[in-house]
Amino acid sequence: MGSLHRVAHRGYSAVAPENTLPALAAGVLAGATFIEFDVRTTADGVPVVVHDRTVDRTTDGSGKVWELEFDEIARLDAGSWFSPAYAGVGVPQLTEVLDLLRPHAVLADSAGDAGVTPAVAPRVELLLEIKPPATLEQVKFIVGQVADAGLLDRTVVQSFDPAIVRLAGEAAPDVRRGLLRDAFDTSQVEVAQELGVSFCNPSMNAVLGSPGTVAALADAGVAVMPWTANDVTLWPDLVEAGVAGLITDHTGELTGWAAAR
């Protein structure tokens, strides 16, 4: 059996506030092979990393992300809701996240680059979810920032919205794409092939309820990584079902478990 991808869901979100720089950095340190995060676009066109449609749950502000300008979002506290230790942590721009992760995603060219040598440089990949609503121009801008950071070949762009998956393919035909699902579609292999995705990432229940679909997708060259795999007692069953990785809030625990298998 091949190695199991360890996907840090919104970063190592069990130990730091989700989708913040501390959580994403903690995911790297905890041994994630993929760092997963969510991107939305502000009213003035700035891609920011936040999950919900509004900022209400994870900041001290309120309002829909796409109705707020970046300067308004930049003033928000995105850490205190999780712990007083993270008071003052903000909602990051996508460019800040790319700057943070780039040294861990690209092999160093010399011993001085990123403080590591080519032999020991960690290599993570990015699992970037674009949240709706998103226009073609917004998707192009998001993908363009990834390309400018030199991370396009280390990134999978995914969405629950097939239209956004198509837009990502239009914006960058060579970028790997993923389709998120709550449950598998009735013709999931055909849907995945029509969209040209490399990953189809459904809920854990979908995987446990239909391992045959997981196998059929694998035969078609489409990997499956279910969300959100926080129950360690289910990890063996999910692996037995043939998944390529697990998306979890408990990155460190998954790294230890995978090493001990």
Rank of each mutant, 00 (worst) to 15 (best):
W257A: 15
E190V: 13
D77Q: 13
T135I: 00
L180S: 05
D148W: 00
S210Q: 12
I247G: 09
T33G: 14
Q138D: 09
T54I: 01
A171W: 08
R123L: 15
E67F: 01
T41A: 08
D77F: 05
G88L: 08
D113E: 14
G256I: 08
R154F: 05
L21P: 13
Q193G: 11
A216D: 15
L151V: 07
A168G: 08
A183F: 10
P132Q: 06
I73K: 02
V146M: 03
L208E: 11
A171R: 03
E72V: 12
R57Q: 11
F199A: 07
L217E: 10
L234V: 03
V222T: 14
L101M: 11
D113I: 00
D113S: 14
I35H: 12
A163W: 06
N205F: 11
L234P: 10
Q193Y: 02
L4S: 05
A74C: 05
T42P: 03
L179I: 09
V91G: 14
A168E: 04
C200E: 13
R57S: 06
E240T: 14
W227T: 10
S159H: 03
F37T: 09
D99I: 01
G11C: 10
A119E: 09
V243Y: 05
F141D: 02
L98M: 03
G169Y: 10
T255A: 15
W235D: 09
L217A: 06
Q138H: 09
V89D: 08
E67H: 12
N19Y: 10
E125D: 04
T20I: 04
L126V: 09
H104D: 10
D174N: 08
R10M: 07
I130E: 01
G242M: 07
S83Q: 07
W235K: 10
Q138T: 14
